[in-house]
Design a binder for these strands. Structure first.
Length: 264
DNA sequence: GTCCCGCAGT
DNA sequence: ACTGCTGGAC
């Protein structure tokens, strides 16, 4: 399926935006699949501010997947205390033991292998596959739903099977637009973009509130409509005073070579 | 009190 | 296809 101009435009501008908006996080640029897995499990259903100290503690206490596998269950649960959704911790520990005992301590390096781990669903498998191994799997989480529904004007409810399919297909299509960057760079960008620009507290996901002016953004040469999505304070969407630089750079964005290591 | 939105169990 | 899971922000 060929990408539309709008899809190419979106991808280019997203990457340009991300290049100018680094949000430093301990796992950004991380290539260790164990640490990526750990951070993704902690971040399921959990905000970065809440999960960050837990990630640091787990990383310090269990530097490798074998360390985690060898830890007693009650110690792992104790370290998880306060994060909620305790089945995540039980699955994390069970999967660590599986990797240590059945896979010689080496983390699975294929999407299917990662996806088969306890507690790892489509989203987490795609995140680990692309961030650790640069495999072309699109991450489709709540952040991605929010960004795509607004930019592409999709109103299909994401809590329906049809909606999940539609968003997954669109996200994967965006991944496959070539020569615009690498897979994990693109995945990272879209998630970060939401974090900065479209916060759930301002536009409820269930309501599928489209970004104001979304319908008018089909004019791809209009810098003002571009800014309305990628920068300007508008319609209750949380923004900071950083739109000028981002908006100025988007039209000069060169195509990146795929397979590179941009966007740290 | 409502909302959050990834995964697993059913 | 539908539901429960935790704690925290609002």
């Amino acid at each position: 399926m060929a990408a539309t101009d709008r899809q190419v435009f979106f991808t280019k501008n997203l990457l340009a935006w991300h290049a100018g908006h680094h949000r430093p996080m301990p796992w950004k640029g991380e290539r260790n699949p164990y640490l990526i897995w750990l951070s993704e499990i902690i971040l399921q259903q959990t905000r970065v501010e809440q999960g960050l100290p837990y990630f640091e503690r787990f990383k310090a206490t269990y530097p490798t997947v074998t360390d985690l596998a060898n830890a007693p269950e009650d110690e792992v649960m104790k370290l998880w205390e306060g994060l909620g959704y305790y089945s995540r911790a039980r699955n994390l520990h069970a999967a660590a033991k599986h990797i240590a005992h059945d896979l010689n301590g080496s983390f699975p390096a294929t999407y299917e292998g990662i996806r088969s781990l306890k507690g790892v669903g489509d989203y987490t498998a795609a995140a680990i596959a692309s961030f650790a191994y640069d495999l072309p799997h699109a991450v489709v989480d709540g952040n991605v739903y929010r960004v795509l529904s607004r930019y592409f004007g999709i109103e299909t409810p994401i809590d329906s099977t049809a909606g999940k399919k539609e968003f997954a297909a669109l996200a994967q299509g965006l991944m496959e637009i070539r020569k615009l960057g690498n897979w994990w760079g693109r995945n990272f960008s879209i998630s970060q973009f939401q974090t900065k620009r479209l916060q759930p507290g301002h536009n409820g996901l269930r309501r599928h509130a489209l970004y104001p002016g979304c319908a008018e953004m089909w004019n791809l040469s209009d810098a003002a409509t571009l800014r309305s999505f990628f920068g300007r304070k508008n319609g209750g969407v949380a923004c900071e005073n950083e739109e000028a630089g981002a908006a100025a750079s988007v039209f000069q964005l060169p195509d990146f070579q795929s397979g590179g290591r941009g966007f740290h």
